[in-house]
Design a protein around this nucleic acid. Structure first.
Length: 585
DNA sequence: GCCGTTTTCGGCCCGACTGTTTTCAGTCG
């Protein structure tokens, strides 16, 4: 379940929103927002800190520290409750509609009494927004479009939210007496990018103790269905969770069945029928005699169908069964294959942790190498200068090889995340860029250029001799912003031609490239990098979601450059680059 | 509400874009 830090961060983010929505001081709102972000990214658990220790967290002063203590002690904060009483929860939800911020939401609530997304949609259609100052026909259009985007995300949650909850549930249920196995199945096990409901599977002779423990979980708010083989609940976050309990001898068949996907299972059952067998969640049986052929492990079930075990992220009926039969199933890249992270930030730009903390955390993860890639000066929200970047490089060189248990220590690469401007140009002239070990280049604005312009823009970036990796290539934000309208095939072709690597950005709200695009890109012979884009030490671990996405794209370790040894990686980065000038560090 | 080689008050990232205005407010990154 969420750490105290995440809970507290969510609380202050809500408080900040409520301050804005009630017309409070904008700087006060911003201060709480900064505190929330800082707390969320802080390495130590706030529950272990006192008021003084809490104030060590950047952007946390006396007032916030005391509120944290109040929250951890009472489970509530009076100041937050006071504002909650004034703003219906639906009003806060309005700001989730893209292009609708706190000021407009406040006007809608105060002038028209709108307090939910549904009421907003009705009001727009009834043309009730027309008379409001600052609301024109284009605003109406944007709001309707935003609502549509919001709805297309549905009630699904991002992977990290679902994974945290599911792992907590599995951990607790595994402790229940009589439970022999427990694991999550469903789309979470297949690492789909969003999760609609969580499927948990357990094996036990007697299901009653598990079902009881499940309904008594602290964050369960509603029991939707309660039986001996299946129980469904809803959690405080509105997520539906199903628990199914099967006899231990059916474990493998049940895990296979409940992992899906539906399309994959249909294909398997068809194959079973073809072989004179019958496949269900209880096992693989002889269709005539009904005798059990396999059910204890997934491997047994697949073997009974003449197939190798298929990794869950591949189970989408996208050719995995044919590949399994032909013996050409790829061995997907795993987290253990990764030797480093090639896109990360520090507090030099918009990261939360100083260089040394990020490096130490990377070393703890056992990496062989690690790249620091803060933003260049083109992003106006940053304050980057040549001097600050070179100073960071000197500090990074001093830390090179000094961390980690590996021989030679953790090797550090100095990089930058460049901004791809509307014409496809990037920050800094070539001679300055040549001083970096690697450059990530990404689109951060002007998302609405037409397809031709966007395609030219990305292809030009690929062709730049110093651009090694295209960061979050489509810039989509799941449920918030669609990807840019770009001819990806042209980009893939350019990447393959120039050796430019495509990023699989592992942040749960991005997962960019996404699996379908990866499947296409790999046909062009493109290489990939699975990167965390970490802005705090805690983000480093999100790499697992990027790996899941890479697996869904059928990538092997060889396709992913940050599984390569450093010498091979360096050789690849050096291709086509201008020679460094002798004076560049 | 936080912070400090502008330090206990007076700033707070800031520029681009969009849409609604006719000089600016809101949103976003």
């Amino acid at each position: 379940m969420a750490r105290s830090n995440d809970e507290v961060a969510a609380l202050f983010q809500e408080y900040a929103d409520l301050i804005s929505l009630t017309g409070g001081d904008a700087f006060r709102a911003r201060a709480h927002e900064k505190a929330a972000r800082s707390i969320g990214g802080y390495h130590a658990d706030v529950a272990t800190l006192d008021v003084q220790g809490l104030q060590e967290i950047p952007d946390v002063g006396r007032s916030v520290a005391e509120k944290i203590v109040e929250y951890l002690r009472d489970g509530r904060v009076a100041a937050v409750e006071e504002l909650r009483a004034r703003v219906p929860p639906g009003v806060r939800r309005l700001t989730a509609v893209p292009t609708l911020g706190p000021r407009k939401a406040r006007v809608l609530h105060e002038e028209l009494g709108i307090s939910s997304v549904e009421e907003l949609a009705d009001a727009v259609r009834a043309e009730r927004l027309r008379d409001l100052r600052g609301f024109g026909p284009k605003t109406e259009e944007n709001i309707l479009h935003g609502i549509e985007l919001l709805r297309s995300a549905g009630d699904r949650v991002l992977l990290d939210v679902a994974a945290d909850l599911a792992e907590d549930i599995v951990g607790r249920l595994a402790e229940v007496s009589g439970c022999s196995r427990c694991a999550c199945a469903g789309s979470l096990r297949r690492v789909r990018e969003t999760i609609g409901d969580i499927d948990v599977l357990a094996a036990a002779e007697d299901s009653a103790p598990l079902m009881r423990a499940f309904t008594e979980l602290p964050y369960v708010t509603e029991v939707i269905a309660h039986g001996t083989t299946k129980t469904s609940v809803r959690t405080t976050e509105g997520l539906a969770v199903d628990l199914r309990v099967v006899p231990p001898e059916s474990w493998g068949a049940a895990l296979q069945y409940f992992t899906g996907s539906r399309a994959h299972n249909i294909r398997l059952r068809e194959r079973a029928v073809h072989l004179g067998l019958k496949l269900s969640e209880y096992g693989l049986f002889d269709a005539e005699t009904g005798s059990r052929i396999a059910s204890r492990t997934e491997e047994d079930v697949y073997a009974g169908l003449g197939l190798p075990w298929i990794p869950p992220p591949l189970r989408e009926d996208r050719g995995e069964i044919e590949a399994g039969l032909a013996g050409t199933l790829p061995r997907p890249v795993t987290e253990a294959d990764l030797r480093g992270d090639l896109h990360t930030h520090t507090d030099l730009t918009d990261g939360l942790a100083p260089l040394q903390e990020m490096v130490a955390a990377a070393a703890d993860r056992g990496y062989a190498y690690y790249a620091v890639t803060d933003h260049g000066p083109a992003l106006s929200m940053q304050r980057m200068t040549d001097e600050r970047m070179l100073d960071q490089r000197a500090r990074l060189r001093a830390l090179d090889g000094r961390y980690g248990r590996r021989r030679g220590g953790l090797r550090l690469l100095h990089g930058a995340e460049l901004n791809i401007d509307p014409d496809g140009g990037v920050d800094w002239p070539e001679d300055f860029l040549a001083g970096f070990d690697l450059c990530v280049a990404s689109v951060h604005s002007h998302f609405r250029q037409d397809r031709a312009a966007l395609t030219r823009r990305l292809v030009r970036a690929c062709e730049h001799p110093c651009v090694d990796i295209i960061g979050h290539p489509t810039t989509r934000l799941i449920g918030k912003r669609p990807g840019i309208d770009v001819d990806l095939d042209a980009v893939f072709e350019a990447c393959a031609r120039t050796g430019t690597v495509l990023e699989i950005n592992a942040r749960p709200e991005r997962l960019d490239l996404r699996d379908e695009d990866i499947l296409r890109a790999r046909r062009y012979g493109v290489r990939f990098a699975v990167n965390s884009d970490a802005h705090s030490t805690r983000h480093l671990a999100t790499l697992r979601f990027g790996i899941g996405t890479a697996q869904r794209g059928w990538l092997t370790a060889g396709d992913v450059v940050n599984t390569w040894p450093l010498t091979r990686l360096r050789r690849h980065l050096a291709r086509g680059r201008p020679k460094r000038r002798p004076d560049s560090r």
